[in-house]
Design a protein around this nucleic acid. Structure first.
Length: 456
RNA sequence: GUGGUUGUAGCUCAGCAGGUUAGAGCGCUAGAUUGUGGUUCUAGAGGUCGCCGGUUCGAAACCGGUCUUCCACCCCA
């Protein structure tokens, strides 16, 4: 007997109800993207390995799904590689393609490849699945969707301002109030590393400090020590752990801390601009919050860093992130093009909306009216009406078999079809239809004309 | 990648100090009701106890492996 079929670890099927809810989120995001002037592109689900490898750090390389070469791919491998048993060396020999890991790097590749056709600044959005060979957890899958909006070819800080507004706009439309948009700046982090004399350990430093809210002050200090950052440097970091108050307060304290770092001062200036501008423009549903411990692992960020957390009452990691990268296209040979973008994590947003019961009831409705099938002649009579209804954009269907009525009504019930037409011999003779409201149970006998009016 | 956890009917779960024919609720099918669903009543179908191997007279239960679930770490949407 065949084994019970299943989907691979970390992947899922989506039922009609789930698809309806997912496309509700996607449509909302898409409309906002377009409202802000972004244009859609799509890129292949897999790229040449060299496009992706090395762009996300060591950890990222491990999490990239590699695609095996076709044909007798082992023929090309020298004997030595088998005895060495080093997969990092063997992999490039047997795999030259990989599934995309995010949408930003393929986008950078796209920009470089099509630079002569693109009008800059280029504002594009992209909503496609990405894959990571991660171990699944709650809200963490191996196949999931990102919805990205990026601008390349402009280093104006107004882009950052707009992206914050865009986040806010989407959350407001989804009724997801109380999300917090956290902002930081890579230059501030560099400045801090500079001031405490740990410039050479910037990555280790940012990774450790990013965990502050999770492992606490002592935990961070411990990790910094383990990474070889001196005790003195960590002492100089002390003011960072007691950062409180308004964004304004934090900026002021930062100014003191980073007075001697030019990079740091630049970072503060940038963040200050975004925060002040947003303050005078106002946000509808979210808060913008300066978080100096926000780092994010992706090491291509050079300016602003964003991360969005769902309302506190929901236990969920970040539902979006983004930032400014001054030289992402540089790695593909196009220098001096700055980009900034944000990403929405569709799958996590789904879980959050579900948990908070924020999906509108109407997203699941599809067919508006079901015609009961009583047999050949009646079915034809029904199909004539259905044709007219469909012509008027009213979703309608005929139950395909002339089975007992109870069964047909149960079907309508399960499908949450709001209306049923009962049209048998009587109705056929009088050229009428009995319209039944499935919710109230009420029925009325009406003409086709009236039916069209009623369901429009 | 590291450590732990889970898997019994379509779904949610019970069962187990190893012992006949593995249970419940919900759902499903049929009937009460051959032109009226969502309530009720009656009857019924449905399980290689994730998979492979081992221990044992005997395994759903114990052991090993494997896949899967969820969780922590790493990292991240």
């Amino acid at each position: 007997m065949a084994k019970k079929p299943s989907v691979p670890k970390g992947t899922r099927d989506f039922s009609p109800q789930e698809v309806a809810k997912r496309s509700y989120i996607m449509e909302t995001i898409k409309k906002c993207f377009q409202l802000y002037g972004f244009q859609p592109i799509e890129t292949p689900s897999f790229e040449n390995s060299e496009t992706l490898m090395g762009k996300y750090g060591e950890e990222g390389d491990r999490l990239i799904f590699k695609i095996l070469n076709s044909g007798e791919y082992l023929n090309k491998v020298e004997e030595d590689f088998f005895s060495i048993k080093n997969s990092a060396w063997l992999t490039p020999k047997i795999s030259e393609k990989a599934l995309r890991y995010d949408l930003t790097v393929p986008f950078a590749r796209y920009v470089v490849q099509h630079q002569n056709e693109i009008t800059f600044p280029f504002k594009r959005y992209q909503m496609q699945p990405v894959w990571r060979a991660d171990r699944p957890q709650k809200g963490r899958f191996r196949e999931f969707w990102q919805c990205d909006a990026d601008v390349v070819g402009s280093d104006s800080l107004w882009q950052e301002v707009e992206l914050v507004q865009l986040y806010d706009d989407v959350f407001e439309k989804l009724k997801l109030n109380g999300s917090s948009i956290k902002i930081n700046n890579r230059k501030i982090l560099s400045g801090i590393a500079e001031v405490i004399g740990a410039e050479d350990k910037l990555i280790d430093f940012t990774v450790a400090i990013d965990k502050l809210d999770k492992i606490g002050e002592e935990g961070v200090k411990k990790e910094l020590l383990e990474k070889g950052i001196s005790k003195r440097a960590i002492e100089n970091l002390q003011p960072l752990f007691s950062f409180t108050g308004s964004n304004e307060d934090k900026l002021n304290s930062l100014s003191q801390l980073l007075a001697t770092s030019e990079t740091g001062r630049k970072g503060i200036e940038e963040v200050r601009f975004v925060i002040k501008t947003i303050q005078s423009l106002g946000l509808k549903s979210s808060k913008l919050e300066l978080d100096v411990t926000l780092a994010r692992g992706l090491n291509y960020y050079t300016g602003a860093i964003f991360e969005v957390s769902a309302p506190k009452k929901v236990q969920m990691g970040s539902i979006g992130g983004g930032g400014r990268y001054d030289d992402l296209t540089g790695i593909f040979g196009l220098k001096g093009v700055s980009g900034v973008g944000i990403s929405f994590g569709l799958d996590r947003m789904y879980l959050v909306l579900e948990e908070l019961g924020l999906f509108p009831k109407t997203v699941e409705e599809n067919t508006k009216v079901l015609f009961i099938n009583f047999g050949e002649a009646e079915a034809l009579y029904a199909m004539q009406a259905i044709t007219a209804l469909r012509k008027n954009n009213i979703a309608s269907e005929l139950y395909p078999e002339a089975v007992k009525m109870g069964k047909q009504l149960t079907y309508a019930d399960k499908r949450t079809i709001p209306y049923v037409i009962v049209a048998g011999g009587n109705e056929l003779q009088t050229k009428t239809f009995t319209l039944k409201n499935m919710k109230s149970g009420e029925q009325e006998i009406i003409s086709l004309e009236a039916l069209l009016q009623k369901l429009k």
